[in-house]
Amino acid sequence: MFLAWNEIKRNKLKFSLIICILILISYLLFLLSGLAKGLINMNTEGIKKWNADAIVMNKDANQTVAQSIVDKDKVDGKYKKQATLKQTGVIASNGKDEENALMFGTEQPSFLVPKIVKGHKVHKDKEVMIDQSLANKGFKVGDQLSLSQSDVKLKVVGVTESAKYNASPVIFANNQTVAKVNPQLQGDKVNAVVVKDKKWKDKSLDSKLEAVSMDNFIEQLPGYKPQNLTLNFMITFLFIISATVIGVFLYVMTLQKKQLFGVLKAQGFTNGYLSKVVLSQTFILALIGTVIGFGLTLLTSEFLPDAVPIKLDLLTLLLFGVALIVISLLGSVFSILSIRKIDPLKAIG
C-alpha cells in the first residue's frame, strides 16, 4: 500500500487523469441509477402507497384500469379488505395553470387515498384533493378547478402526499363526483377493485373478471417494462465500459513501467508483491473517484428542477459504488498478468 500511494503522490498529473475518468464514470452511473429510480417512482408511487395485494379487473381490459368496467356487487364481500376505484383522465385548470391528471373516485374513507398533508378530506360532491405533485405546479387548497371535458366545477379542499400514477398527478374525489365527470361510471360501475388479502388467490370470481397481483399489474403499466429494461441495459453496459476503460489505462501504465518492474524483480520483489501493489493502487484510485462521483451526484440532485424525475436510493448507490470498485480491481487483472510475464534481464536491457 505504501509503494502504491507513494507512486500516486509522485505522479499526480498522470493519476489525476485516471481519477477524473473514474469520477465521470461513477457520476454518470449514479445519476443514471437515480433517474431510473425516479422514473419507476413516477409510474408506481401512488400504487405502492396502497400496500395492496391484488387488483380485480375485467378480463378483456388487458390489465389496464382505464379499459376495465366492473360491477361492484360482483366483488363485494369476497375479500378481507377491498376498495373500489373509478378512474378517468382529465385536463384540470385553476385559471392560471393547466395540467393533465388522473381523477380517482374512491369510497370515503379509503386506503387508496394517501396521507393528507394540508387541508381536509372530501366531505361532499364536487370536492377534491390533489396530490403534492400538483401542488408543486401551482395548484392549492381553495382553487376552483374547471375540466376541459366537463362542465363540472371542482373545489380543492386538501393536498395529499405525492401519489403519481403512471407518471400522472392524481386528483382524489368521491365516486359521485367522478360519475358526473364520466357518465360511464354511474352507480355501481367501477374500473377496478383493489384488494388487501393475502389469500386473494383462493377466492372465486365471475368468469368475466380476473384478479392480478400488484407486481404483475405494475409490470403491465404502459411503457413501464421497456423503460426499465432500457435503463438497466444502459447501466449494465456502463459497468462493462468502465471495466474496459480502467483495464486499458492500467495496462498502458504497466507497459510504461515495464523497466521499473524489471528492476524491482531483479532486487527480489516477487510477482505476488507487485500484484498487490497494482491492486492497492487501483483500489485507491477507484475509491477516490467513486467517493467524489457520489458527492457530485448528491450535489447535482439538489439543483435539478422538479421536472427531472430523480430519486436517489442510498443503498443502491452504495452497492453500485462497491460494484464499481470491484470492477476496477477486475480491470487490473491484465496488468497483473503482464507483470508476471516481465523478464527482469530483458526489461533492464
Rank of each mutant, 00 (worst) to 15 (best):
residue 283 F to M: 06
residue 318 L to F: 08
residue 193 V to F: 11
residue 43 N to E: 08
residue 200 W to G: 07
residue 258 K to L: 00
residue 245 V to T: 10
residue 38 G to P: 03
residue 263 V to W: 06
residue 256 Q to P: 03
residue 140 K to Q: 15
residue 42 M to A: 09
residue 25 I to S: 12
residue 258 K to P: 00
residue 84 T to I: 08
residue 152 V to M: 09
residue 258 K to V: 00
residue 215 D to I: 13
residue 1 M to K: 07
residue 341 K to A: 09
residue 277 V to T: 04
residue 142 G to A: 08
residue 134 L to A: 05
residue 113 V to L: 06
residue 19 I to N: 02
residue 173 A to E: 10
residue 323 A to R: 09
residue 22 L to E: 03
residue 36 A to D: 05
residue 150 S to M: 12
residue 26 S to E: 01
residue 268 G to L: 01
residue 212 V to I: 14
residue 297 T to D: 13
residue 338 S to D: 11
residue 244 T to V: 13
residue 136 N to M: 11
residue 321 G to P: 13
residue 176 Q to L: 14
residue 346 K to N: 11
residue 330 L to I: 15
residue 262 G to P: 00
residue 203 K to P: 01
residue 125 D to L: 04
residue 22 L to F: 07
residue 99 E to P: 05
residue 22 L to Q: 04
residue 176 Q to N: 15
residue 316 T to N: 15
residue 66 A to I: 10
residue 251 Y to P: 01
residue 314 L to G: 12
residue 125 D to E: 14
residue 159 V to P: 11
residue 133 S to W: 06
residue 39 L to F: 05
residue 175 N to E: 13
residue 303 F to W: 15
residue 24 L to C: 05
residue 144 Q to T: 15
residue 303 F to S: 15
residue 118 K to Q: 08
residue 28 L to W: 00
residue 36 A to H: 10
residue 245 V to P: 01
residue 254 T to L: 03
residue 170 V to K: 14
residue 94 N to Q: 10
residue 67 Q to C: 02
residue 198 K to C: 12
residue 181 V to W: 05
residue 305 P to V: 02
residue 149 Q to S: 15
residue 24 L to N: 03
residue 134 L to K: 02
residue 281 Q to E: 15
residue 341 K to G: 05
residue 100 N to W: 07
residue 165 Y to P: 12
residue 221 L to W: 02
residue 29 L to N: 02
residue 326 V to R: 14
residue 214 M to R: 02
residue 274 L to E: 12
residue 223 G to A: 06
residue 173 A to P: 02
residue 166 N to H: 07
residue 264 L to M: 10
residue 225 K to S: 10
residue 179 A to M: 07
residue 211 A to E: 03
residue 282 T to Y: 00
residue 212 V to K: 03
residue 248 V to L: 07
residue 328 S to M: 10
residue 213 S to Q: 06
residue 114 P to G: 15
residue 18 I to M: 04
residue 100 N to T: 12
residue 171 I to K: 12
residue 294 F to M: 14
residue 148 S to M: 13
residue 129 M to K: 13
residue 24 L to F: 11
residue 228 N to L: 08
residue 81 K to G: 03
residue 345 L to K: 13
residue 18 I to R: 01
residue 50 W to I: 00
residue 132 Q to M: 04
residue 34 G to V: 03
residue 56 V to T: 13
residue 105 G to W: 05
residue 330 L to G: 13
residue 154 L to M: 10
residue 108 Q to F: 08
residue 65 V to C: 02
residue 283 F to L: 12
residue 278 V to Y: 05
residue 140 K to R: 14
residue 148 S to D: 14
residue 99 E to W: 01
residue 269 F to V: 00
residue 290 T to P: 09
residue 216 N to Q: 08
residue 237 F to W: 07
residue 203 K to F: 04
residue 295 G to Q: 07
residue 304 L to Y: 11
residue 10 R to Y: 03
residue 317 L to D: 07
residue 258 K to D: 00
residue 94 N to M: 07
residue 295 G to R: 10
residue 133 S to C: 11
residue 216 N to C: 03
residue 289 G to W: 05
residue 64 T to Y: 01
residue 162 S to M: 14
